[in-house]
Simulated scan of single mutants.
Amino acid sequence: MPIAEPTGPHIFARRRAALMARAAARGFDGVLAFGHGSALGAGSHSHGALRYLSGWDGHESAALLAITHQAAHLFVASPFMAPLARMQRSDLVLHDVRPQAWRSTLAGILPGPAATIGFGEMPAQIHATFAPHADAALDDEAARLRLVKDATELRHHRAAAALCDLLFGRLGDALLSRRPAWEIQLDLETLARRSGAEQCRTWLTIAPQADYCRYWPAETQQVPQAGDQVLFGVALTLDGHWGHGIRMGAIGPMTPEQRALADHVAAMLDAGLGAIRPGAPLAGIEAAIEGALADSGLATHPGLRRFRSGHGLGFSYEEPLLTEAFRQHFDQGAPPAAPPDIALAPGMLFELHPNLFVPGLGGAAIGEMVLVTPDGPDCLLATPRAPAVWT
């Protein structure tokens, strides 16, 4: 399977220069970008910004990137990460310094005031040492630089989509092995890692009536049986670029009720895809999906549960700004979506995954990686979206 080449240092340098131009326009002489490592997976937003600007992954440790007009300095939180940083990121000035000394070390590097990125995820003990820098956030400016993917990013995302397809293609045989769902997940996640993914997290719901996204061994003990629904989600990274998708099916014939749910979700996805065209409002995607749900008659069904219908995709699992246009429905207390004033443009990348879980009926979900092109949406996954039937 072809895997995209690692991103070159000149591309990171170009991204930093673009960010510094925006920071200088606001009167800053530098930028401080804090980020967790990839071990948090989808649970970190700061990692995406740090990876976009530097290519560095601290894995289970955090890092700080200090950008000036003269150089880019990488501060690693763990001494065990310093050898890897020297090997992988020779384009950066490495500082093998613990977080409590980051601020004092920066005194000799920053010529003046610095803007910040990712400080909202910085541990309070470190954050307190950075006053007054801690309130000079430049997160939105950095996020706007990431809205449109360049050719290098798109090559990686397409390769990540191919890895998702690889796992979808192996699911049927894995189900027939008659092993618990968590063992199937482990095998498929290992396959993704062996095939080039840095990390892979799946969810696999196997039940007569699918109820929610089941991730962990304690909730994935079910052995596939005739009559079960199967919903399978994949989220992985390749050189820091996320790939993501969801496919579904049944072991044996689907019930009429489950077929109807699948049809409703397919209609929601089609509506969302139909709203994707250059110049159209970002908010139109969610509005179209919600309109299709209203047409289904299920929007007010007692007990209906569903998670977010989509999000931006990039160096973060939920790419900033784009994701704000999609409400997290699974959280009953989440506020309505409040998308920024952004129009769709070629090069934006989304994961659209409308979903429905209805007590007494079952569940349905379809997830597509969708690229905005001059001609409309381009779905990057090759696996058919129609529900599979495994016998």
Score class of each variant (00 low, 15 high):
P2K: 15
I3W: 06
A4S: 14
T7N: 02
L19N: 05
F34S: 04
F34V: 06
S38P: 08
L50V: 07
G55C: 01
W56I: 02
L65A: 03
L65G: 02
H69R: 15
F75L: 14
P99Y: 03
S104N: 14
A114L: 09
A114T: 11
A115Q: 03
A124K: 15
I126C: 12
A128G: 13
H133G: 08
A134S: 12
A137D: 11
A143N: 12
L147H: 10
L147Y: 09
D150Q: 01
S177Q: 14
S177H: 05
R179H: 10
A181Y: 10
E183S: 01
P208E: 09
D211Q: 08
C213K: 03
E219P: 00
V223T: 13
Q229F: 05
G233F: 00
L238K: 10
H244Y: 09
G245M: 00
M248T: 10
P253K: 09
M254W: 07
R259S: 14
V265L: 05
I276H: 01
R277Q: 14
G279T: 13
L282G: 09
I285C: 07
A288Q: 10
E290Y: 06
G297C: 08
F326I: 09
F326A: 06
G333A: 12
G333Y: 03
P339G: 06
D341A: 14
A343T: 14
L352W: 03
V358K: 09
G362D: 04
I366A: 02
P374K: 13
P374Y: 14
D375W: 12
